[in-house]
């Protein structure tokens, strides 16, 4: 399948190129901020001599381009640099945070994606009838309320009043999977509610679009039940648009959890990022930005690849 391979290679190469461009943008963006790392370390009372010394020490006098390539070279070896405030290696402290964020995103996705698709199928099956309208109303309402508000509401009712789940989602390596899951139950619920509506509505729209096709009529005239028709004949042809919106939402689960992590004081990337932004720790902000960008680009790339693979004309050329 030369055409298929060509398309896939093209798409992956494009993704990598995009990531490179984003890295340049992040580096450039954090460099045009007023003041530099030396000033942030020494603060306002810095003497010009001390600034010059630190700049020399950190290599800040080198031209921006060569600093960019140094940074890039470090990235390629997994070296994200050193945090200015704590002097710790960013890669190692970020590693466990990223793991936690991905853990939270993963479980939110495990709940949200099948639920969204199932609700989408259900909405199509009972189109324009009360189940459809109810599903639409609830998912729309949940996306319209800001996530921190949902977070606090759930925390109050489920956490405090009912006592079903902990209100603070601390996890550490010593916990069993069950303990961890119970600890993140509330943030998972909040994230699910936030991403459900998009995915469910796109599933519904994509399938309804396909339901107009002549082959759906063929399936009806075969005497199949409505749900069989939707699941076996309509769904496989609506995968591409559904996967696209699913991936966008997965990306949001990783990148957009900042607020939810702060609300539930969850030890993930979001918390870490917020802490270091407030301390103006530029290397950490750069590293976090790049990781978020990589997740976004990576998931969108996966969406495109799935769309390509879902097309029978490309998968099975003449």
């Amino acid at each position: 399948m030369p055409l298929l391979m060509k398309l896939l290679v093209q798409r992956i190469a494009l993704g990598l190129l995009l990531l490179l461009l984003v890295s340049a943008l992040i580096f450039w963006g954090t460099n045009i901020l007023p003041g530099d790392v030396a000033q942030s370390i020494l603060g306002q009372s810095a003497t010009p001599e001390a600034l010059a010394n630190i700049r020399e020490e950190l290599g800040l006098n080198e031209p921006a381009l060569s600093r960019y390539f140094d940074w890039l070279g470090g990235l390629a070896h997994g070296d994200l640099g050193t945090a200015l405030t704590s002097g710790q290696d960013i890669a190692s402290s970020l590693g466990s945070r990223l793991k936690n964020t991905l853990f939270l995103a993963f479980w939110a996705a495990v709940v949200a994606v099948p639920l969204a698709i199932f609700l989408g199928l259900l909405a199509v099956r009972y189109r324009e009838r009360w189940p459809d309208k109810l599903i639409s109303a609830i998912t729309l309402a949940s996306i319209s309320v800001p996530e921190f508000l949902i977070g606090y509401i759930l925390m109050y009712f489920i956490g405090v009043k009912l006592g079903w789940a902990p209100t603070v989602s601390m996890i550490h390596d010593g916990m069993t999977l069950g303990q961890k899951l119970s600890s993140i139950a509330l943030p998972v619920a909040v994230l699910t509610m936030v991403v459900l509506a998009h995915m469910m509505r796109m599933t519904r729209a994509a399938i309804l679009n396909v339901m107009q096709s002549a082959y759906i009529e063929t399936a009806e005239l075969k005497g199949l039940t409505m749900f069989t028709i939707i699941w076996r004949h309509a769904f496989p042809n609506s995968i591409a648009p559904i996967v696209n919106v699913v991936m966008l939402n997965l990306a949001y689960l990783v990148v957009g959890v900042v607020v939810v992590e702060v609300v539930f004081t969850y030890p993930g990337m979001g918390q870490y990022l917020v802490d270091h932004v407030s301390k103006r720790d530029v290397p950490v902000v750069q590293a976090c930005g790049l990781i978020f960008a990589a997740v976004y680009i990576g998931l969108n790339m996966v969406a495109d690849i799935v769309s390509i693979l879902a097309n029978p004309r490309l998968r099975h050329p003449k």
Partner: peptide, 22 residues
């Protein structure tokens, strides 16, 4: 449903559109 597809069947004008491409 028992009748459709087994007792009485249908051949449409455009087979290209009436077959599921996937």
């Amino acid at each position: 449903r028992k009748l459709r597809g087994t007792e009485v069947t249908y051949v449409s004008q455009s087979a290209a559109a009436s077959f599921n491409p996937a």
